[in-house]
C-alpha cells in the first residue's frame, strides 16, 4: 500500500518479536506444560504420563470434550453463555439410551440428538428472538433438563442394551487406529466443518460481527437474533453428538451423566482464549483450551493431586486466563 504512514519494518526485528503471542501464546504454554510433566516423569514423580495408553485415553477424553467446548465457543462468540450443556447432555443421553432400547439403534440416536437440538433451539429462540438474558435462560434450562433427566430415569442407570447394540456402540466409541482413538477423527472432521463455518462463511462472519458489536452488526443488515439462535442451536447439536459419543464409549448412562460438565466446557473455552465479551476467539482456541485442560488435569492426577486440589488449580487457571485476556484488551 502506497499510503501507509508507518515506518518500514526494521530488518533487525527478531523472530521473537514477530511472534504472535495473542494467537499462539497458549500453545507455547501447553508445550511447556507437557515438557514439565515429561521431566517430572523422567525424575520419577509422575507415572505413565507420556505413554501410549495414557495418551490414547486422554486424546479420547479430549475429543469428547472438544464437541461441547466448540459449542460453548460458538455461544461465547456471540457474547452469550450456555450453562445448560451438562444437564442437557444428561437428558439427551438418557433419551438416547431409552430410545435405543425401545426403537432400535438408529432411531434412538436420532431421538437423543434431536432432543439436544430441540433444547438448543429453545435456548436460542429465547435468547435471540424473545431477547431474554442468556444467563437466565440457560440457567433455567439447566434445572429443567436435569429435572427431566432424573424424573425420566427415576434415578436408575440404563444399560440393558443387546449384545449387538453394545458391539456397534463400542466399535464407534472405543476403536483405536495405531493408538489413535477413532473419536479423534470424528472430532477433527467436526473441527474442520466448524472452522470453515466460522472463517469462511457468511454465517461465521455474522457470528463474529454480532459478538463484537451487536448494534453495528444490526445496522450492517445482519439479523443478530437469528445468528444467536443458530449459535445456541449449534451448541445443542454439539451436546447431542457428545452424548452419543459418551454412550458409545461406555454403553450405560444415568440422569447425572453430564453433571457439571458445563463448567469444564466453560473453563476450557475461556482458557483457550475465547472471551466473554464476544467476537474474539474461535474454534482453534477451543482445541487448544480442550487439550490444555485435559492434559493438565490428567498430569495432576498422575502427580497424585487430589480432586479438590485440582479444582483449586482450575480456578486459579481461569482467573489467570481472564486477567491476561482483559489486559490484552486494555492495551
Amino acid at each position: 500500500m502506497a499510503n501507509v504512514a508507518e515506518a518500514p519494518v526494521r530488518p533487525s526485528a527478531s523472530l521473537l518479536a514477530k511472534f504472535n503471542y495473542e494467537k499462539y501464546g497458549l500453545l507455547v504454554v501447553f508445550i511447556m506444560m507437557m515438557l514439565i510433566f515429561y521431566i517430572l516423569q523422567l525424575m520419577g514423580y509422575v507415572n505413565n504420563f507420556i505413554e501410549a495408553h495414557n495418551l490414547t485415553n486422554q486424546l479420547r477424553n479430549a475429543s469428547l470434550l472438544f464437541f461441547i467446548v466448540a459449542g460453548q465457543s460458538m455461544v461465547l462468540l456471540v457474547s452469550g453463555i450456555d450453562l445448560s450443556q451438562g444437564s442437557l447432555l444428561s437428558l439427551s443421553s438418557v433419551v438416547m439410551a431409552q430410545g435405543i432400547l425401545d426403537f432400535g439403534l438408529a432411531v434412538g440416536v436420532l431421538m437423543g440428538i434431536g432432543m439436544a437440538t430441540m433444547f438448543g433451539f429453545i435456548n436460542g429462540y429465547l435468547v435471540g428472538r424473545v431477547k431474554i438474558q442468556p444467563f437466565i435462560v440457560t440457567l433455567s434450562m439447566l434445572f429443567i433438563c436435569a429435572g427431566i433427566a432424573l424424573v425420566f430415569t427415576g434415578g436408575r442407570t440404563i444399560h440393558q442394551f443387546t449384545g449387538e447394540q453394545k458391539d456397534i456402540l463400542q466399535t464407534i466409541g472405543l476403536t483405536d487406529f495405531f493408538h489413535i482413538p477413532g473419536t479423534l477423527f470424528i472430532a477433527i472432521f467436526f473441527f474442520i466443518i466448524l472452522y470453515l463455518l466460522t472463517k469462511r462463511t457468511v454465517l461465521g462472519r455474522a457470528i463474529y460481527l454480532t459478538g463484537g458489536n451487536e448494534e453495528a452488526a444490526r445496522l450492517s443488515g445482519i439479523d443478530t437474533g437469528k445468528v444467536k439462535l443458530i449459535c445456541y442451536l449449534i451448541s445443542g447439536i454439539c451436546v447431542g453428538i457428545t452424548s452419543f459419543l459418551y454412550l458409545a464409549r461406555l454403553p450405560a448412562t444415568n440422569g447425572l451423566a453430564g453433571f457439571q460438565l458445563e463448567f469444564q466446557s466453560l473453563a476450557a473455552t475461556v482458557v483457550g482464549g475465547t472471551t466473554f465479551h464476544g467476537g474474539e476467539g474461535g474454534v482453534t482456541q477451543a482445541v487448544i483450551g480442550t487439550l490444555f485442560l485435559t492434559f493438565l488435569l490428567n498430569g495432576l492426577i498422575l502427580l497424585g493431586v487430589g480432586t479438590f486440589a485440582r479444582e483449586v488449580v482450575v480456578g486459579v487457571l481461569l482467573i489467570t486466563a481472564v486477567v491476561l485476556s482483559s489486559r490484552k484488551r486494555r492495551e
Binding site: R205, Y208, L209, G212, N213, E215, A216, A217, L219, H277, G279, E280, R329
Partner: peptide
C-alpha cells in the same frame, strides 16, 4: 464507535 463499527475486529471485517 458503537454503532458503525466493531472495534475489536479488523478493517477488512
Amino acid at each position: 464507535k458503537t454503532q458503525g463499527l466493531t472495534q475489536v475486529l479488523s478493517v477488512a471485517f
